[in-house]
Nucleic acid binder design. Sequence first.
DNA 1: GTCTATATGGAGATAGAC
DNA 2: GTCTATCTCCATATAGAC
Lengths: 185, 185
Amino acid sequence: MARIVAERADIVPKLGEIFREHGFEGASLALIGQKTGLGKSSLYHFFPGGKEEMAAAVLADIDAWFEANVYRPLREADDPRRAIADMRRSVVDYFRSGRRVCLVGAFALDNVRDRFALEIRNYFVAWTQALGASLERAGHDRQIAHQRAEEAVANIQGALVLSRALGDPSVFERALARIEAQLLA
Amino acid sequence: MARIVAERADIVPKLGEIFREHGFEGASLALIGQKTGLGKSSLYHFFPGGKEEMAAAVLADIDAWFEANVYRPLREADDPRRAIADMRRSVVDYFRSGRRVCLVGAFALDNVRDRFALEIRNYFVAWTQALGASLERAGHDRQIAHQRAEEAVANIQGALVLSRALGDPSVFERALARIEAQLLA
DNA sequence: GTCTATATGGAGATAGAC
DNA sequence: GTCTATCTCCATATAGAC
């Protein structure tokens, strides 16, 4: 099972952290090599497409994580209100109370936005639709459910921006408490 | 008055647009030279500190604009509720219904965040305090006013992220209508 | 799969003439 | 204040041995 040699699957999460901390352009191959402990040759062995392929792999990894841990629970849970409360916990945890940046949100504001426009779009569409489905099953009108979901997803991003700008994780936690309350109201 | 030769004051707004569109690292000196019509020498004549000084000048310019057009009206207007409605209009206009990125928010998520940590922080603190002052004068408890202001400022950033990610300005406009309604409620 | 060495381009920045 | 020419450095990416 566990091998000494590197595998793509081991590297991708590390790449994610590096991109989160330094951004796409700020994550030089030298830095990536340093942080992953891999030489450039190894990196190109795993990702022949270079940095762009690395970022794409990270985005796919993020998508898979949210699909399994956020979207699907929202869509399929027996109790939609409980699923929303679970979402809050997952999200606060995932973003480390706002200390961790949302890579997709950061990409959306960044120079790379055009290169990953589809992935960025899909992330937010999927989240909004899954949350909308939960709200609908919780008894809301379809239109209202979608509106509220969109609002919540946007507000989470806003909380990430502000809490990072102020260097204050409590901003994020308070915001997520409010967002959950609004969703459950 | 109006001279042919370039002045710092003429260049800074252009720099702002370039940084908004391409990010700090994506705005190469070659690109800046191209878009401003100035050679590198001229740019270094105006900004001996290079790109960092350019970005600092842009942030100072943004701060001055918000101070004059947003913060001061919020603090000093006779009718605080009217000031909040004016803020919404100013903000929708300024961000071109979400088509224009908030440079400060983008910097907050970017690699350059540490270099401009103070300016980024001040932007959001000033906005939150000015809006909080308006809400207080509108009759809210000090604590509540601050909370609501922080929430609104964060939500505006979230609206910018989402509307850009979806490529849909209507997301931004709807969000700002909601935000205004929540502030005036 | 990982190493060392290297190609090549573009980045930020500067010098000095005009 | 703006030009042309140039410096230096580091970026991404590749080649080929092991």
